[in-house]
């Protein structure tokens, strides 16, 4: 393994030669990547490169037809999504997918659904409200009535409520104003500093690489390039294809 958690053995999350299909469509063609404890790792690439599919394969929304996904040493390739939350995988999916007719508070409570033994969600709610004070003003409001930015905050906050050890974020900056984008990325850094490992999918490659430790470039379901965020930012091909430079 190239990236490890420093001690013995393998990285926290290992995707090993994974092939995933959407019906007949061969979306992931043998992807391998690792995420070590404490890292922010970003997946960049064009639309249809397989970024979202990779996250869905990790969180159990899709299952690989070949290859394996290992989390903290266990093969999780065949486990259903609802079992993976309990194991510590939080997923803020593409399109936010908040519950439109639950209140903000209920959405956050749903985020903690897997922690059935926890009676008092107070400290967790406090943490989310500290990260996103806007949500505190809106607790009794229905999720569907929030603005796009607020919905994004709610989606991230909701994923945090499960106290994930790894957080999968799919396009957290999509549709947000430049100021909000900045804010969301700052928050992701905060979340990471507080100890949560992050696997981040972004269209906004420059932003993503500015907060990530490492990155993978995906193209038509394969990893074509990988390295430290810094090296990817310097890379000629990446600059041309994904950072919008000539």
């Amino acid at each position: 393994m190239s990236a490890t958690n420093g001690a013995s053995g393998e990285a926290m999350l290992v995707i090993d030669g994974v092939h995933t299909y959407y019906g007949q469509i061969h979306a992931l063609r043998g992807i391998s990547l690792t995420v070590a404890q404490g890292e922010i790792v970003t997946l960049i690439g064009a639309n249809g490169a397989g970024k979202t599919t990779t996250l869905k394969t990790v969180s159990g929304m899709l299952h690989p037809r070949a290859g394996r996904v290992r989390f903290e040493g266990d093969d999780i390739s065949k486990l259903p999504a609802h079992k993976l939350v309990e194991r510590g995988i939080g997923h803020a999916p593409e399109g936010r997918r908040i519950f439109p007719r639950l209140t903000v508070l209920e959405n956050l409570q749903m985020g903690a659904f897997s922690r059935r033994d926890v009676k008092d969600l107070g400290p967790d709610l406090d943490r989310v409200f500290t990260l996103f004070p806007r949500l505190l003003e809106r607790t009794a409001q229905l999720g569907g009535t929030l603005s796009g930015g607020e919905q994004q905050m709610l989606a991230i906050g909701r994923a945090l409520m499960s106290q994930p050890r790894v957080l999968l974020l799919d396009e957290p900056s999509l549709g947000l104003s430049p100021i909000l984008v900045q804010q969301v990325f700052e928050t992701i850094k905060d979340i990471n500093r507080q100890g949560t490992t992050v696997l981040l999918v972004e269209q906004n490659a420059l932003q993503a690489l500015s907060i990530a430790h490492r990155g993978y470039v995906l193209q038509t379901g394969e990893v074509v390039l990988t390295g430290s965020a810094e090296s990817l930012r310097q890379n000629e091909t990446v600059r041309k294809a994904y950072l919008g430079e000539d």
């Binding site: 159990g60 609802h82 079992k83 999916p93 908040i98 985020g111 897997s114």
Partner: peptide, 16 residues
Amino acid sequence: RATAQDQQAASLMGVD
């Protein structure tokens, strides 16, 4: 209620 609104999202929350 969450399941009625969005089954996939509910399963991502750990709902069986």
